[in-house]
């Protein structure tokens, strides 16, 4: 997949990748559909869709509560919920639907199998962490946090921000990208020698698909967990 041609187009002077935009739109539509149809007929006694939605909200709030102080969880709840659902659907999308043009450029795949997407979300987390820190502690106390435990720690603190940004984005990218790549490799194997390899490869493909689905869920969970950890670090004064 690494050597595949990438379909791009220009818009407003910026380069867009067709695969990312189309996949992103697919996830967007899926998510709106899920949210819309589960949130109909809200009642005090929840029914199927509402039960699911409330369980999901409790779940993402639970992730945030794990690290962010209880008083501030409410402000990040919507962000955590959207992020988790978006990443989860993005991770799973490429496992079930992969569309390519005749030229070999993929159009629909997991948006998170592109480092640019994951680093975008990672950057968003870092920005939110910075803003939250300034909002909670004020400029002075927020930036003096970088000088703790002592002044010479400053380069390490700045470097840590950078590594956090990279590891957060590249972790999820690595898992999802390798998952999709291996799916492609197994498919190539299946197609290589006709029916014989097909019979062997299909169970392997299914097993790997299942495992990747599991990994996709785990990675979405890990991403939100780590994001909330990074934010919570900025919300308190280091001793």
């Amino acid at each position: 997949m690494n050597g595949d041609p990438v379909s791009t187009f220009q818009f407003l002077g910026l380069t867009f990748s067709t695969a990312n935009v189309v996949s992103g739109l697919v996830v967007f539509v899926l998510m709106v559909a899920v949210i819309f149809f589960t949130s109909r007929k809200l009642a005090m006694k929840p029914t199927k869709g509402q039960n699911f939605l409330e369980w999901l909200i409790d779940f993402t709030n639970g992730i945030l509560k794990g690290s962010i102080p209880a008083g501030d969880v409410g402000k990040f709840g919507l962000w955590g919920f959207t992020l988790f659902l978006f990443l989860f659907l993005s991770n799973e999308l490429g496992l079930f639907i992969q569309v390519a043009t005749r030229g070999g450029a993929t159009i629909v795949r997991s948006p998170t199998s592109d480092p640019l997407t994951t680093l975008t979300f990672s950057l968003m987390t870092m920005m939110i962490a910075q803003f939250a820190g300034v909002w909670k502690l004020g400029y002075k106390r927020h930036f003096t946090n970088y000088l703790k435990p002592f002044v010479f720690w400053l380069p390490i603190s700045i470097f840590e921000e950078f590594t956090n940004f990279l590891t957060l984005g590249l972790r999820i990218f690595g898992v999802i990208f390798s998952g999709e790549m291996l799916l492609g490799v197994i498919w190539d194997l299946a197609a290589s020698h006709g029916i014989a390899t097909m019979i062997v490869a299909v169970p392997i493909e299914m097993a790997w698909q299942g495992f990747s689905a599991f990994l996709g869920a785990i990675q979405a969970f890990v991403f939100v967990t780590l994001s909330s950890v990074y934010i919570s670090q900025k919300l308190e004064v280091e001793e």
Binding site: V6, T8, F11, L12, L14, T15, F16, S17, N20, V21, G24, L25, F28, M31, V32, L78, W79, T82, L83, F86, P111, D114, L116, T117, L119, T120, F121, L123, M124
Partner: peptide
């Protein structure tokens, strides 16, 4: 051929979704 437009696209999409 760095497609920075995608970042913008995802940020806008994400905010719209939120």
């Amino acid at each position: 051929s760095l497609y920075f437009g995608d970042s913008l696209f995802y940020i806008v999409t994400f905010l719209l979704l939120m």
